[in-house]
């Protein structure tokens, strides 16, 4: 069966995000009162699989994220 998978990988709470800080400063310079801006990574793909949850989890652990510094979440729905 074919699935549409969306994965978000973000830095663990408490780890500083230099890119996020720069973007936040730029937004503040434009007059927006932004706080706690983070820059997660977003992946979307189609997956042929009998067990998409297990494979998505494995993909995050093996490549898409670095378990030492990242946490992740994903959503999976059938391709219609």
């Amino acid at each position: 069966m074919k699935w549409k998978v969306n994965v978000i990988v973000r830095l663990k709470e408490g780890l500083n995000d230099p890119e996020g800080r720069v973007i936040q400063n730029a937004l503040r310079n434009l007059g927006f009162n932004v706080e706690n801006l983070r820059v997660p990574k977003y992946f979307e793909f189609e997956l042929e699989s009998e067990n998409p949850e297990r494979e998505a989890e494995e993909m995050c652990r093996k490549l898409l994220a670095n378990p030492l510094i990242h946490e992740w979440e994903y959503s999976i729905e059938p391709v219609s």
């Binding site: 780890l15 230099p18 890119e19 800080r21 720069v22 670095n66 030492l68 510094i69």
Partner: peptide, 16 residues
Amino acid sequence: TESELLPGALRPNRVP
């Protein structure tokens, strides 16, 4: 580090 032959991770510089 990415292949876990060494511990830790190398993250973007503090000033990116």
